Amino acid sequence: MSTIGIIGGAGWLAGALLRPALAKSMVRAEDVILSSRRTAVAGFDAWPGIRTTSDNAELAAKSDIVILSVRPDDLSGVEADLSGKLVISVMARMPGSEISKRFGCDRLVRTMPNASAEFGQSFTPWHASPNVTSADKAFVASFFGASGIAREVPNEPDIDYFTGLTGSGFAFPALMARAMIEHAIENGVAPDLADVAVRQLMLGAGTYVSVSKENAAEIVKTFVDYGGTTSAGLTAMIERDSDGVVKAGLDAAWQRALGN
């Protein structure tokens, strides 16, 4: 088995990705090394075989696969020779060319998981550089598939777009949920009742959209055409340019991912 090192292993994203992979036996604890500035890494009590280190160079020397899971602004402080390794980046706003130049690696995969990985619900797009092997790709698909759906994308700029679209995880739907909860409270519904009602609505909506044979546009049309209370609500939102608001948010997130 290959040894997997995660630089930034104490971070929330590293844990959210690694725990599902361990739980589903996609990787073995004894094959994992985590680097962190902390003396201990929390969240892995069920897998005592995991090794830890505070030395990134040591991690790199002992690993066949290295996952970069640090904030982009902290990458300048990472010192390691990653030549000859499969390197996987889960960082936003960091082009593959910069990573390859800094660490001397030519087998690089850029990915963009989201916070739903912990629950096995992330959508994780990934893009491989030309020298990534078929075996490398199989590992990437298996590892990120443990925490949701993983899909290879043909162009690296796709990763920057998906950083805004799906890298947001549940944050954008949560914005709508917040407005719905506030509206319910403003109209006399008890806060705890409003909260549980909207939470369950979001759960049901996500499940329905994910399994329905209709796509999102068809679902909206079906309810608008029905002419009931939902139709009235949807029509009012559409007339106030709900699509434009969502697209403006995605544009802003995409531009930030591009470093603009």
Rank of each mutant, 00 (worst) to 15 (best):
N114H: 08
T111V: 12
H127L: 12
I99T: 03
G120A: 11
L108C: 02
V109F: 04
F123D: 02
H127W: 15
S89Q: 04
S89L: 10
F119H: 15
S97T: 14
V87F: 04
S89D: 08
S100F: 01
D81Q: 10
S100R: 13
S129Y: 12
K101Y: 03
G120N: 08
G84K: 08
P125C: 12
F119V: 14
W126C: 03
S129C: 09
F123N: 10
P95V: 11
S129I: 04
L108G: 05
S89R: 09
D106L: 03
S83F: 04
V109K: 00
V90M: 08
V109D: 00
S76E: 15
R102V: 05
I99Q: 00
R102G: 05
H127M: 07
R107Q: 11
V90W: 02
S83T: 14
H127S: 10
P113L: 14
M94S: 15
I88E: 01
C105E: 06
D81L: 05
S97R: 15
G84H: 05
L82R: 06
M91Y: 09
K85M: 05
H127T: 06
S89E: 06
A80P: 01
D106K: 12
S122L: 11
L75S: 09
G96I: 07
R93F: 13
L75F: 13
A117Y: 11
P125E: 02
W126Y: 14
S97H: 11
S100K: 13
E118Q: 15
W126Q: 00
T124H: 06
F103L: 06
M112R: 02
F103R: 01
A92F: 11
R107N: 09
A115S: 13
D106N: 14
V78L: 06
T124C: 14
G120M: 11
V109Q: 02
A117D: 09
F119N: 13
G84C: 10
S97G: 13
F119I: 14
K101A: 13
V109T: 03
P113W: 13
A115Y: 02
M112L: 12
R93W: 10
W126L: 01
R102E: 10
V90G: 01
D106I: 05
A92T: 10
V78W: 09
V87C: 02
R110C: 05
T124M: 11
D74A: 15
S76V: 15
P125A: 06
T124K: 12
D106M: 07
S76Y: 08
P113M: 12
I99S: 00
S83H: 12
T111H: 03
V87H: 02
L82K: 03
D81P: 07
R110Y: 11
Q121P: 08
I99A: 00
A128W: 05
V90I: 15
R102W: 08
I99G: 00
L82I: 09
